[in-house]
Protein backbone atom coordinates (compact mmCIF):
# COMPACT_ATOMS: atom_id res chain seq x y z
CA UNK A 1 0.00 0.00 0.00
CA UNK A 2 2.73 2.36 1.02
CA UNK A 3 4.28 4.12 -1.96
CA UNK A 4 1.06 4.36 -3.93
CA UNK A 5 -0.81 5.86 -1.00
CA UNK A 6 1.58 7.83 1.14
CA UNK A 7 3.28 9.73 -1.68
CA UNK A 8 0.04 11.21 -3.04
CA UNK A 9 -0.96 11.99 0.53
CA UNK A 10 2.31 13.73 1.23
CA UNK A 11 2.00 15.54 -2.06
CA UNK A 12 -1.55 16.67 -1.41
CA UNK A 13 -0.48 17.93 2.01
CA UNK A 14 2.26 19.96 0.30
CA UNK A 15 -0.24 21.26 -2.23
CA UNK A 16 -2.65 22.29 0.46
CA UNK A 17 0.20 24.05 2.26
CA UNK A 18 1.14 25.83 -0.95
CA UNK A 19 -2.51 26.76 -1.51
CA UNK A 20 -2.75 28.15 2.00
CA UNK A 21 0.41 30.16 1.51
CA UNK A 22 -1.06 31.62 -1.62
CA UNK A 23 -4.32 32.49 0.11
CA UNK A 24 -2.36 34.11 2.88
CA UNK A 25 -0.68 36.34 0.34
CA UNK A 26 -3.98 37.17 -1.34
CA UNK A 27 -5.67 37.86 1.95
CA UNK A 28 -2.75 39.87 3.19
CA UNK A 29 -2.73 42.02 0.07
CA UNK A 30 -6.45 42.61 0.38
CA UNK A 31 -6.09 43.52 4.03
CA UNK A 32 -3.26 45.89 3.23
CA UNK A 33 -5.14 47.46 0.36
CA UNK A 34 -8.08 47.93 2.68
CA UNK A 35 -5.92 49.44 5.38
CA UNK A 36 -4.49 51.96 2.92
CA UNK A 37 -7.98 52.92 1.88
CA UNK A 38 -9.05 53.11 5.49
CA UNK A 39 -6.30 55.60 6.17
CA UNK A 40 -7.25 57.70 3.20
CA UNK A 41 -10.97 57.88 3.74
CA UNK A 42 -12.74 60.38 5.95
CA UNK A 43 -15.15 59.40 8.69
CA UNK A 44 -18.15 58.86 6.41
CA UNK A 45 -20.01 55.49 6.37
CA UNK A 46 -18.78 52.54 4.29
CA UNK A 47 -18.70 53.21 0.56
CA UNK A 48 -19.92 50.56 -1.93
CA UNK A 49 -16.29 49.89 -2.74
CA UNK A 50 -15.51 49.21 0.89
CA UNK A 51 -18.51 46.97 1.19
CA UNK A 52 -17.28 45.00 -1.83
CA UNK A 53 -13.82 44.70 -0.35
CA UNK A 54 -15.25 43.59 2.95
CA UNK A 55 -17.18 40.80 1.26
CA UNK A 56 -14.08 39.69 -0.68
CA UNK A 57 -12.02 39.58 2.50
CA UNK A 58 -14.69 37.49 4.23
CA UNK A 59 -14.80 35.12 1.30
CA UNK A 60 -11.00 34.80 1.28
CA UNK A 61 -10.99 34.12 5.01
CA UNK A 62 -13.64 31.45 4.57
CA UNK A 63 -11.67 29.73 1.86
CA UNK A 64 -8.49 29.90 3.90
CA UNK A 65 -10.35 28.29 6.80
CA UNK A 66 -11.58 25.54 4.53
CA UNK A 67 -8.06 24.89 3.23
CA UNK A 68 -6.80 24.77 6.79
CA UNK A 69 -9.40 22.17 7.70
CA UNK A 70 -8.48 20.18 4.62
CA UNK A 71 -4.81 20.38 5.59
CA UNK A 72 -5.51 19.20 9.12
CA UNK A 73 -7.56 16.29 7.80
CA UNK A 74 -4.82 15.27 5.35
CA UNK A 75 -2.21 15.52 8.05
CA UNK A 76 -4.28 13.38 10.39
CA UNK A 77 -4.69 10.76 7.67
CA UNK A 78 -0.99 10.85 6.91
CA UNK A 79 -0.16 10.49 10.60
CA UNK A 80 -2.37 7.45 11.06
CA UNK A 81 -1.05 5.88 7.86
CA UNK A 82 2.53 6.45 9.00
CA UNK A 83 1.70 5.00 12.39
CA UNK A 84 0.28 1.89 10.82
CA UNK A 85 3.25 1.52 8.46
CA UNK A 86 5.66 2.02 11.32
CA UNK A 87 3.98 -0.70 13.37
CA UNK A 88 2.58 -3.20 10.92
CA UNK A 89 4.81 -3.30 7.86
CA UNK A 90 8.04 -4.02 9.64
CA UNK A 91 6.97 -7.20 11.46
CA UNK A 92 6.41 -9.30 8.30
CA UNK A 93 9.76 -8.09 6.98
CA UNK A 94 11.45 -9.19 10.17
CA UNK A 95 9.84 -12.58 9.62
CA UNK A 96 11.11 -12.81 6.03
CA UNK A 97 14.62 -11.84 7.03
CA UNK A 98 14.71 -13.83 10.25
CA UNK A 99 13.35 -17.10 8.89
CA UNK A 100 15.55 -16.92 5.77
CA UNK A 101 18.50 -16.61 8.09
CA UNK A 102 17.19 -19.43 10.30
CA UNK A 103 16.82 -21.62 7.22
CA UNK A 104 20.41 -20.90 6.17
CA UNK A 105 21.68 -21.54 9.68
CA UNK A 106 19.75 -24.66 10.55
CA UNK A 107 19.44 -26.32 7.15
CA UNK A 108 22.41 -24.79 5.35
CA UNK A 109 24.02 -28.20 4.92
CA UNK A 110 21.09 -29.45 2.88
CA UNK A 111 21.18 -26.48 0.50
CA UNK A 112 23.39 -26.02 -2.54
CA UNK A 113 25.04 -22.78 -3.63
CA UNK A 114 22.05 -21.70 -5.73
CA UNK A 115 19.67 -22.16 -2.81
CA UNK A 116 21.97 -20.09 -0.60
CA UNK A 117 22.07 -17.40 -3.28
CA UNK A 118 18.26 -17.33 -3.38
CA UNK A 119 18.11 -16.96 0.39
CA UNK A 120 20.63 -14.15 0.21
CA UNK A 121 18.45 -12.40 -2.36
CA UNK A 122 15.36 -12.83 -0.20
CA UNK A 123 17.17 -11.16 2.66
CA UNK A 124 18.55 -8.40 0.44
CA UNK A 125 15.00 -7.73 -0.75
CA UNK A 126 13.73 -7.49 2.81
CA UNK A 127 16.55 -5.08 3.67
CA UNK A 128 15.81 -2.92 0.64
CA UNK A 129 12.08 -2.81 1.39
CA UNK A 130 12.85 -1.85 4.96
CA UNK A 131 14.98 1.07 3.75
CA UNK A 132 12.17 2.19 1.45
CA UNK A 133 9.73 2.09 4.35
CA UNK A 134 12.16 4.16 6.42
CA UNK A 135 12.34 6.68 3.59
CA UNK A 136 8.58 6.93 3.30
CA UNK A 137 8.28 7.46 7.02
CA UNK A 138 10.95 10.15 7.04
CA UNK A 139 9.23 11.85 4.11
CA UNK A 140 5.93 11.80 5.97
CA UNK A 141 7.69 13.17 9.07
CA UNK A 142 8.90 16.09 6.96
CA UNK A 143 5.35 16.89 5.92
CA UNK A 144 4.07 16.54 9.48
CA UNK A 145 6.99 18.24 11.24
CA UNK A 146 6.20 21.46 13.06
CA UNK A 147 7.10 24.61 11.14
CA UNK A 148 8.91 27.13 13.36
CA UNK A 149 10.09 30.09 11.32
CA UNK A 150 13.12 32.08 12.39
CA UNK A 151 16.02 33.89 10.77
CA UNK A 152 18.30 31.10 9.52
CA UNK A 153 21.91 31.53 8.42
CA UNK A 154 21.88 29.27 5.36
CA UNK A 155 25.60 29.82 4.75
CA UNK A 156 26.38 28.45 8.20
CA UNK A 157 24.22 25.36 7.58
CA UNK A 158 25.96 24.76 4.25
CA UNK A 159 29.42 25.26 5.77
CA UNK A 160 28.66 22.81 8.58
CA UNK A 161 27.38 20.14 6.20
CA UNK A 162 30.35 20.74 3.85
CA UNK A 163 32.75 20.28 6.74
CA UNK A 164 31.12 16.98 7.69
CA UNK A 165 31.19 15.68 4.13
CA UNK A 166 34.84 16.59 3.70
CA UNK A 167 35.72 15.06 7.07
CA UNK A 168 33.96 11.82 6.17
CA UNK A 169 36.01 11.44 2.97
CA UNK A 170 39.21 13.39 3.61
CA UNK A 171 40.91 11.94 0.52
CA UNK A 172 38.55 13.74 -1.83
CA UNK A 173 39.78 16.93 -3.45
CA UNK A 174 36.87 19.31 -3.77
CA UNK A 175 36.61 23.06 -3.73
CA UNK A 176 33.75 24.47 -1.65
CA UNK A 177 32.62 27.93 -2.65
CA UNK A 178 30.09 29.08 -0.07
CA UNK A 179 28.82 32.65 -0.13
CA UNK A 180 28.77 33.91 3.44
CA UNK A 181 25.95 35.72 5.19
CA UNK A 182 23.09 34.24 3.15
CA UNK A 183 20.09 34.20 5.48
CA UNK A 184 16.42 33.42 5.09
CA UNK A 185 13.26 33.19 7.14
CA UNK A 186 12.38 29.55 7.62
CA UNK A 187 12.45 26.49 9.81
CA UNK A 188 16.03 25.75 10.72
CA UNK A 189 15.68 21.97 11.08
CA UNK A 190 13.77 21.57 7.82
CA UNK A 191 16.14 23.83 5.87
CA UNK A 192 19.09 21.91 7.24
CA UNK A 193 17.58 18.66 5.94
CA UNK A 194 16.90 20.18 2.51
CA UNK A 195 20.37 21.71 2.13
CA UNK A 196 22.01 18.48 3.22
CA UNK A 197 20.14 16.48 0.60
CA UNK A 198 21.28 18.92 -2.10
CA UNK A 199 24.87 18.97 -0.87
CA UNK A 200 25.08 15.19 -0.48
CA UNK A 201 23.83 14.82 -4.06
CA UNK A 202 26.39 17.34 -5.31
CA UNK A 203 29.09 15.58 -3.31
CA UNK A 204 28.10 12.19 -4.66
CA UNK A 205 27.87 13.22 -8.30
CA UNK A 206 31.22 15.05 -8.30
CA UNK A 207 33.06 11.92 -7.12
CA UNK A 208 35.94 11.16 -9.44
CA UNK A 209 35.81 14.57 -11.15
CA UNK A 210 38.99 16.52 -11.65
CA UNK A 211 38.78 19.97 -9.99
CA UNK A 212 35.44 19.11 -8.41
CA UNK A 213 33.58 22.14 -7.15
CA UNK A 214 30.38 22.79 -5.20
CA UNK A 215 29.03 26.28 -4.65
CA UNK A 216 26.24 27.84 -2.66
CA UNK A 217 25.01 31.37 -3.21
CA UNK A 218 22.00 33.61 -3.51
CA UNK A 219 21.39 34.58 -7.14
CA UNK A 220 21.92 38.25 -7.92
CA UNK A 221 19.64 38.22 -10.92
CA UNK A 222 17.29 35.24 -10.88
CA UNK A 223 15.85 34.31 -14.26
CA UNK A 224 12.37 35.19 -15.47
CA UNK A 225 11.09 31.82 -14.25
CA UNK A 226 11.14 33.20 -10.71
CA UNK A 227 8.64 35.71 -9.33
CA UNK A 228 10.26 39.16 -9.33
CA UNK A 229 11.93 40.21 -6.10
CA UNK A 230 11.96 36.73 -4.56
CA UNK A 231 15.39 35.62 -3.25
CA UNK A 232 16.63 32.54 -5.07
CA UNK A 233 19.33 30.28 -3.65
CA UNK A 234 21.52 27.94 -5.64
CA UNK A 235 23.54 24.79 -5.00
CA UNK A 236 25.72 24.12 -8.04
CA UNK A 237 28.23 21.41 -8.84
CA UNK A 238 30.40 20.44 -11.79
CA UNK A 239 29.64 16.73 -11.47
CA UNK A 240 28.20 14.25 -13.94
CA UNK A 241 24.93 16.17 -14.31
CA UNK A 242 21.97 14.50 -16.01
CA UNK A 243 19.83 14.74 -19.09
CA UNK A 244 17.20 17.46 -18.65
CA UNK A 245 14.85 15.32 -20.73
CA UNK A 246 14.13 13.35 -17.55
CA UNK A 247 14.12 16.29 -15.15
CA UNK A 248 10.35 16.13 -14.78
CA UNK A 249 10.64 12.96 -12.72
CA UNK A 250 13.37 14.35 -10.53
CA UNK A 251 11.33 15.48 -7.54
CA UNK A 252 9.09 12.41 -7.29
CA UNK A 253 9.74 9.89 -4.54
CA UNK A 254 11.96 6.95 -5.53
CA UNK A 255 12.91 8.43 -8.91
CA UNK A 256 16.51 8.02 -9.86
CA UNK A 257 18.62 9.49 -12.64
CA UNK A 258 21.49 7.06 -12.47
CA UNK A 259 21.71 3.27 -12.45
CA UNK A 260 22.64 1.84 -9.04
CA UNK A 261 25.84 0.33 -10.47
CA UNK A 262 27.20 3.83 -11.20
CA UNK A 263 26.03 5.52 -8.01
CA UNK A 264 25.02 2.97 -5.40
CA UNK A 265 23.20 3.89 -2.24
CA UNK A 266 20.71 6.36 -3.69
CA UNK A 267 17.06 5.53 -3.27
CA UNK A 268 15.59 8.61 -4.86
CA UNK A 269 14.13 10.21 -1.77
CA UNK A 270 16.39 13.26 -1.33
CA UNK A 271 14.97 15.58 -3.95
CA UNK A 272 11.41 14.55 -3.10
CA UNK A 273 12.19 15.65 0.45
CA UNK A 274 13.74 18.92 -0.74
CA UNK A 275 10.68 19.65 -2.85
CA UNK A 276 8.33 19.14 0.10
CA UNK A 277 10.42 21.24 2.47
CA UNK A 278 10.62 24.10 0.00
CA UNK A 279 6.88 23.84 -0.61
CA UNK A 280 6.23 24.04 3.14
CA UNK A 281 8.06 27.37 3.09
CA UNK A 282 5.88 28.59 0.24
CA UNK A 283 8.69 28.43 -2.30
CA UNK A 284 9.66 26.16 -5.17
CA UNK A 285 12.71 24.31 -6.46
CA UNK A 286 14.10 23.87 -9.97
CA UNK A 287 16.81 21.71 -11.45
CA UNK A 288 19.13 22.56 -14.29
CA UNK A 289 21.81 20.24 -15.61
CA UNK A 290 24.02 19.28 -18.51
CA UNK A 291 25.34 15.74 -18.81
CA UNK A 292 29.01 15.55 -17.83
CA UNK A 293 29.10 19.26 -16.94
CA UNK A 294 27.18 19.56 -13.73
CA UNK A 295 23.89 20.33 -12.07
CA UNK A 296 22.38 23.35 -10.37
CA UNK A 297 19.45 23.29 -7.98
CA UNK A 298 17.79 26.62 -7.35
CA UNK A 299 15.10 27.25 -4.80
CA UNK A 300 13.06 29.99 -3.25
CA UNK A 301 11.56 29.95 0.23
CA UNK A 302 8.70 32.34 -0.23
CA UNK A 303 6.36 33.47 -2.95
CA UNK A 304 6.35 37.10 -1.74
CA UNK A 305 8.96 39.61 -2.92
CA UNK A 306 11.91 40.43 -0.70
CA UNK A 307 11.24 43.38 1.55
CA UNK A 308 7.53 42.59 1.63
CA UNK A 309 6.20 40.35 4.30
CA UNK A 310 6.55 36.68 3.37
CA UNK A 311 3.42 34.54 3.53
CA UNK A 312 4.78 32.99 6.68
CA UNK A 313 4.84 36.30 8.53
CA UNK A 314 1.98 36.91 10.85
CA UNK A 315 -0.31 39.66 9.66
CA UNK A 316 -0.33 42.11 12.53
CA UNK A 317 -2.47 45.16 12.08
CA UNK A 318 -2.86 47.89 14.68
CA UNK A 319 -6.27 47.43 16.21
CA UNK A 320 -7.41 50.96 15.64
CA UNK A 321 -6.61 50.92 11.96
CA UNK A 322 -7.59 47.40 11.15
CA UNK A 323 -10.21 47.34 8.40
CA UNK A 324 -12.46 45.13 10.47
CA UNK A 325 -14.07 42.83 7.94
CA UNK A 326 -16.72 41.65 10.34
CA UNK A 327 -17.17 39.50 13.40
CA UNK A 328 -15.71 36.03 13.49
CA UNK A 329 -12.91 36.64 11.07
CA UNK A 330 -9.53 35.48 12.23
CA UNK A 331 -6.27 36.80 10.96
CA UNK A 332 -4.51 33.80 9.43
CA UNK A 333 -1.37 32.48 10.98
CA UNK A 334 1.13 30.63 8.89
CA UNK A 335 -0.75 27.69 7.39
CA UNK A 336 1.76 25.08 8.43
CA UNK A 337 1.51 26.27 12.00
CA UNK A 338 -2.20 25.68 12.06
CA UNK A 339 -2.03 22.18 13.36
Amino acid sequence: MSASLIVPLALSASLVVAGLSWWNVVLHRRLRAGRDREEARCSAGPSPEEEQWRRAALEAAGQADQLRLQLRETQRELASLSYSISHDMRAPLRGIDGFSQALAEDYGDCLDATAHDYLRRVRAGATQLNLLIEDLLSLSRIVRAPYRPEEVDLSALVAAAAGELSAAEPMRQLHWDVQSGVAALGDRALLDVALRHLLVNAWKFTAGRIAARISFRVLETPGPEWPPGVPVYEVRDNGVGFDMQYAGKLFGAFQKMHVPEDFPGGRGIGLATVQRIVARHGGSVRADATPQEGAAFTFSLTSAPAGGEPPGAEVALPAGRMPVPGPGMTVPRHPTNAR
Binding site: S82, R90, A91, R94, D97, A126, N130
Partner: peptide, 27 residues
Protein backbone atom coordinates in the same frame (compact mmCIF):
# COMPACT_ATOMS: atom_id res chain seq x y z
CA UNK B 1 8.34 -2.68 19.37
CA UNK B 2 8.55 -2.09 15.64
CA UNK B 3 7.57 1.55 15.89
CA UNK B 4 9.81 4.56 16.18
CA UNK B 5 6.95 7.03 16.09
CA UNK B 6 7.62 9.95 18.39
CA UNK B 7 4.29 9.60 20.13
CA UNK B 8 5.05 5.99 21.12
CA UNK B 9 8.41 7.00 22.55
CA UNK B 10 7.03 9.98 24.44
CA UNK B 11 4.09 8.05 25.86
CA UNK B 12 6.17 5.00 26.79
CA UNK B 13 8.67 7.03 28.77
CA UNK B 14 5.90 9.20 30.14
CA UNK B 15 4.24 6.10 31.56
CA UNK B 16 7.47 4.91 33.13
CA UNK B 17 9.06 2.49 30.67
CA UNK B 18 12.60 1.58 31.75
CA UNK B 19 13.81 1.26 28.22
CA UNK B 20 12.56 1.52 24.65
CA UNK B 21 14.01 -0.79 22.01
CA UNK B 22 13.01 -0.69 18.41
CA UNK B 23 13.07 -4.20 16.96
CA UNK B 24 15.41 -4.15 13.98
CA UNK B 25 14.14 -5.76 10.79
CA UNK B 26 17.56 -7.25 10.11
CA UNK B 27 17.76 -10.48 12.08
Amino acid sequence: TSSREDEDLIQSYGLGANSYIRKPVDF
